[in-house]
Amino acid sequence: MATNPSKLDIFDSQISSNDRTEYQQRVDQFNSTLNEYWTFEVVPNVFKQSLSNTDETTFDYLKDNFGILKGWDEIIDHLKELNSKASSHETYKLLFLSRHGQGYHNLGHSKYGNEDWDDHWSKLNGDGEIVWGPDPLLTELGQNQAKENNKFWKSQLINNSKKDENLIKPTRFFASPLSRSIDTLIGTWDDIVKIEEIKPLIQENLRETIGIHTCDKRSPKSIISKKYEPKGFIIEPGFEEEDIYFKTDYRESVAEHALRIYKQFQYLFNEVKHDDIISLTTHSGTIKAQLMALGHRSFAVGTGGIVPVFVKATKITN
């Protein structure tokens, strides 16, 4: 059910040297305005996805226990030990970066190919057969991918620790404001956690690359609120009613997207101090930006896919 990354996924996941240079320039400029900030790096030899010799085109996280190189008991013990010994300017977290299941825009993208999609079809709401904008829903496959992740998480929680079946269960949850990500979070975690108790936070900064593509325009706040707040979701403060960021004539660059994610990580490591294991349900472009901001190698993720990252954050004072 889970899909390996398609050729389009692999193409879209690549980060050029120019993207990295522009991103670093933007980060340096942003950091120069702050009194202090966090920098990020990946703790090595924890997950196969961070290794340069892991083939992203064939890797299957479902068959390979998230790509763990050690047992979960050892990984979590290491996480706890590192945090117990860390100075006030150092902290560690385990992040599960989840991509939404297949949406109707993914069908459209596959149907028309990358060039025609970017040049024409992505700017429309559909083609008379498929509706992909704004804020498209999950397809039946996408819904089933979330359900498959639900089964996978259950198997991981029960079968991969000698100590505690809740060992790797995230204690904080975040989601993009686009419905395909929120619905994937619900489908993935249904009956494992109680959504009304964990209160996932919907954050604008976690959305997909912004602009031009109608599939990446979010719904009004009132619609998101009506649909998801009764389930237990919280919308972050300052969230505007209309999508003020979406432009029909400009699409965010990779570096701009990554800087937006870098800012979200500043929030995460400043405000979420007592949660070491965190779930973020977003998009392929957002995961690309997250991996870039964390110093991780680029890694293509199919619809419904998950990439775990063991992160070291260091606080720098200007």
Rank of each mutant, 00 (worst) to 15 (best):
K169V: 04
L137E: 15
K288E: 07
Y228K: 03
T39F: 03
F47V: 00
I223F: 10
V254L: 07
N114S: 13
I182M: 04
V301G: 02
F173K: 00
C215G: 05
N18H: 13
G285V: 03
N270P: 03
C215S: 09
Y228G: 01
R26N: 14
G103Q: 04
L69E: 10
K163D: 11
D276S: 13
S87G: 15
P170F: 00
L62A: 03
W153H: 04
Y112H: 11
L157Q: 04
D190A: 12
I212E: 08
V309P: 04
S222V: 07
M292A: 09
D276E: 12
V46C: 07
G187M: 00
E36D: 13
L185W: 05
D73G: 08
V131N: 14
L34H: 07
D19V: 09
L280S: 08
H274E: 14
G302P: 02
S298P: 12
S50M: 09
D118V: 13
P170E: 00
V43H: 00
R260K: 07
K147E: 13
S279A: 12
P134Y: 15
E41K: 08
L82I: 11
E36I: 08
D119C: 12
I235N: 00
N114T: 12
L95W: 02
Y267S: 03
T58Q: 10
K154R: 15
E242A: 15
H274R: 11
N31W: 04
N45F: 05
K48I: 08
G128T: 14
N270Y: 06
K217H: 10
M292K: 05
I68S: 01
I244T: 15
S176K: 01
G126I: 13
L201Q: 02
R251D: 06
E41A: 05
W38F: 09
E115M: 12
D12I: 04
Y104S: 14
E36M: 11
G232Q: 02
S176R: 00
D119Q: 15
A146W: 01
D249R: 06
S298T: 11
N114Q: 14
G142D: 03
K154S: 13
K226I: 07
Q102S: 07
